[in-house]
Nucleic acid binder design. Structure first.
Lengths: 225, 225
DNA sequence: TCCAAAACCTAACACTAGTTAGAAAATAGG
DNA sequence: CCTATTTTCTAACTAGTGTTAGGTTTTGGA
């Protein structure tokens, strides 16, 4: 039995969802409180009963965006058996990441669109959360590598950046009703995992100096939806 | 001997570069003409001598962004010998794409940050240009597939979306002075190309129904930096 | 049903942004 | 150096934005 929500909580959620949508469409600076209010069937002044400021609102949207992804991926990893291979873990993480960004699409797209323009303190906080998420990936990639599931020369930092870059981009093109999230995740995982485990066909690979990955734990900060 | 530019052309370029930088940092709506003018060592009113409007300016920035990438990739492909393999062509395209987005980083990042908020007509025009670019990729991937360089089950549309997604993300983390563009391109190409040509280790691949790629020529529109 | 608290509306404030027209300064060529 | 043209500056206009304080309406519990 769903617990009955107070009017306030109901309206606050409506405002939040409206905000995610408008921030998604118009970015931070292009979003007006009047537009959010219209979307939420309120007047702009009323938003201030629920949120202290526009910044308060965008901050909440950004939090939800990154938290949904991180929580989903961590839960998926936790649900795997102890005996899961590195490949299986990575594939599960890919699937969970995709699921999360599609499920809270407005929030994650709003992050993509707005993050670069928000006040510095807000951006810094969100960046820290995303860096934490990035380290989850670094860990599962390193585990797989350590277990010999990848070729020795694989650069895990670059791999992580490519993977997350491509995953984050999916919100731009994924359309529910077309290919399923499972399909997309499986195809992507196979390309990535085969690519990381393959020996390649080019002599250029053989020239790679190793071990490259271990020394790169302080990789550049990246942006995650 | 460099041809002497008129003052007007010199100033116009300065305004354009300033615009790219400010749009990059603040997005479309968050960018003020005063900020651009400051960056260009002018006053806001002066910009209107060179550009009709803010929209005129962003339009020019967006054009340069996508054109740099498209031209660079097409030139790189053209420079290859007729005997080049599909792998070689794809790797060259990856390298050219990376080079372009790093070289005109302000313009491509400005596109990433601003495109979603610009007036519809501007966005539509840029989208058409990007779709044309996407078809360049679809073609070189299809060629490689046709020549048997990829596994039969490879989904070229998804591959293209992953590749371009990951490539477009590099502007967020690539720092000149670190790894060279060549290194990054080579590593990325090996992951992608091995992944597309590999047979994989999972039975799930074998269940893929083919031919998947040929029927997907009308793939969803994607966004390219 | 009544009434206090919660939730929302409204009008206004202080400030900002894109743009314009005319004035002023800079440039370029004879 | 002079002068016409080009380039830039300036002040102002119109419209818009985040936010506030007080009034009004709605909600929820007794």
């Amino acid at each position: 039995m769903t617990k009955k929500l107070a009017k306030s909580a109901i309206s606050q959620k409506r405002v939040l969802d409206a905000a995610a949508k408008i921030f998604r469409d118009y970015g931070y600076a292009g979003t007006t409180m009047r537009a959010i209010a219209d979307e939420a069937d309120l007047r702009a002044g009323s938003i201030y009963y629920h949120y202290k400021s526009k910044d308060d609102l965008i901050s909440a949207v950004l939090d939800i965006g990154i938290r949904a992804v991180t929580d989903n991926v961590e839960a998926a990893l936790k649900a795997l058996p102890e005996t899961a291979t590195g490949r299986e873990r990575i594939e599960a993480a890919i699937r969970a990441h995709l699921s999360a960004i599609i499920e809270v699409g407005d929030y994650t797209l709003a992050t993509r669109r707005a993050l670069g323009q928000v006040p510095e303190a807000i951006r810094a906080r969100n960046t820290r959360m995303r860096d934490m998420y990035g380290s989850v990936w670094q860990k599962i990639l390193a585990d797989a590598h350590d277990r010999g599931e990848f070729r020795t020369s694989a650069n895990l930092t670059l791999a992580r950046l490519f993977i997350l870059g491509a995953l984050n981009w999916t919100v731009e093109w994924f359309k529910p009703g077309g290919r399923s999230i499972d399909d997309v995740a499986r195809e992507f995982a196979s390309v990535v995992l085969d690519g990381l485990s393959g020996n390649g066909g080019t002599g250029a690979i053989a020239e790679e100096v190793s071990p490259p990955a271990k020394a790169k734990r302080s990789a550049p900060r990246i942006s995650v939806a």
